[in-house]
Amino acid sequence: MKRKTAYLGMMSAAAILLGYIESLLPLSIGVPGVKLGISNLAAVFVLYYYGTKEAALVSAVRILVIGFMFGNLFSILFSLAGAALSLLVMAGVKRIRGFSVFGVSMAGGVSHNVGQLIVAALVVENFYLLYYLPVLLISGLVCGCLIGIASGAVIRRVRPESLNNV
């Protein structure tokens, strides 16, 4: 139990670091505040090693810390929408047989961006923004693939069970 708390704290720290890097790399494609979603990497890890609840916790910590340090109400809202939708979709895809961590993180990356786009369109009450849907789908897909490669490599080396049993 103590180990688990320590690991989740470490994962949160990693997520915050990734979130910070991400905040330095804004996508300048018409929809402000849309982030690449590289901090999803931590969510994918925790989802595989522990579960949905733990992943939600790590993402929430990351969003609040980054939001209060570098962001504002809108960036917090954005991140929450993206992270929540992406986590729900990833947890769903993970349950379906035949998907590996690749498929899970691709689905997560894409839904992360779609969630953010929907929030932006709702805030300004203008669905013309959906024009950016194709760009955001592809960038989410590419980012999801990269995260899939990275987490696949880690999961192969560190068995999820080894963390759960200590």
Binding site: V93, G103, M106, V110, L133, I138, G148
Partner: peptide
């Protein structure tokens, strides 16, 4: 896996 690739293709087609 095969399903991963199908998902990849599907998202590309939608985009």
């Amino acid at each position: 896996k095969k399903k991963d690739f199908m998902l990849f293709l599907m998202i590309c087609i939608i985009a």
